[in-house]
Design a protein around this nucleic acid. Sequence first.
DNA 1: TAGTGGTCTAGACCACTGG
DNA 2: CAGTGGTCTAGACCACTAA
Lengths: 251, 251
Amino acid sequence: MPLGFPDKRPRYQIVAEALFDDIRRGTFPVGGHLPTEAQICERFAVSRHTVREALRSLANVGVVSSQHGIGTQVTSDHIQERYVQSFASISDLWQYVKDTRRECLALSDVVASDARIALPGDPGAPWRMLEGLRYMSGKPEPVAWTQVFLLPRYGDVFDEAGNDAGNEVLIYALVERRHHIVTRRVRQTITATMIEGATAALLKVEPGSCGLSVLREYVGEGDEVYEVTWSVHPAERYSYSMEVVLAQAPP
Amino acid sequence: MPLGFPDKRPRYQIVAEALFDDIRRGTFPVGGHLPTEAQICERFAVSRHTVREALRSLANVGVVSSQHGIGTQVTSDHIQERYVQSFASISDLWQYVKDTRRECLALSDVVASDARIALPGDPGAPWRMLEGLRYMSGKPEPVAWTQVFLLPRYGDVFDEAGNDAGNEVLIYALVERRHHIVTRRVRQTITATMIEGATAALLKVEPGSCGLSVLREYVGEGDEVYEVTWSVHPAERYSYSMEVVLAQAPP
DNA sequence: TAGTGGTCTAGACCACTGG
DNA sequence: CAGTGGTCTAGACCACTAA
């Protein structure tokens, strides 16, 4: 396929785009296989290295995927556009932990059905709970009222949570450090809620005022939820911001 | 560096790990440069292709980054662990667009300072606004009251938003399709708010009840905010859920 | 077994960056 | 200008999968 003008782009890009055009055109349908690398070499009269570079760039955008001994499969006929939100650590989910202080109100053992929120697993399962408030430095009113539920075998970290070092970090981080586990996923649900009764008094807001309620479930190995937190924030003192960015560009 | 036993891993992996060990040890400090590719070839007695494969794998996990004509810089001494939330499209941000219907209440031209929310840019800048409600299929009460602000040059899509085809998708998708633009980022802020007056009546809730307020800014090329949406959801009819997952593992 | 992709070598030239 | 990483070739052997 001679070109009328000298194409200044790298050859692997030219190959990648030609293959992608064929895929979009349906010449290589989604679910089917691309020609072998040797055949692509022949067709474009380039070395195998160049072909592999082209296939790698297509694989990077989710269009093809190679399997050793089998071939290269067409997995999509369009660039997988993804919008992603990325955090350097789970603490960034909270957005305000820096410069805040935790005050512990109570520490107790409960069973799942006692909690005012739904805890995963058996209703009779035991959990260890910490109830507390969180203050911005220098502010007299708390920004959050929080309950933290932990599997009993990790409950010992609550001891550490009270001292100065433990106050600096979130409970999940203490658990990870002390018990050498890794948090695989965090699920988070945000709802609006009315702040009533004792909670209103603790947060120093009028009963019946609006708040943001955030429920987080921390999932470790084997899909086990080892920690659940429930926070209620007065509406004026907290908002939740996030930004998602477009991840990939055409090949 | 002869090994006591035959190492079955690919050479580029061995090279990558050796370099990563050096980086962690501080032999190649963060911010400094790695030896040149030629020097690495010599040190491990491998070809340049193998070295480049090793560097590519380190770049993939955010440890180094190469610059043409300069060298390879050490950008981090630890694997960039990231928690990411990923969306196949912006529509997934809303979590409920499927099976909902938009009802248009009003269409008007406004200037930024008229809006009850902060619009970016000049206070006197013109925007085109659509006010509406969104219903779950089969439910008599709306799940959301919404205002959509568009740059005037995209305002024509509001015409399409009313008909059946346009009702199926979000405004931003109509703009992308009709004006061939791409949304680079979306910023989203969630707050709790009290629903009062006319908004309460439209949403069929008691004045003074709690709601979730979601502000979204859609950013196109050149950091231009081309659309802003403001939605208010009654607390019982909507909650916002998300899940972030741990992204990367050691090389 | 034959055929695929995965790894690897030893060369080469080019494009970019800095002094 | 010299030196860097970016691209490319022509070969080779290996590891995996399916028939």
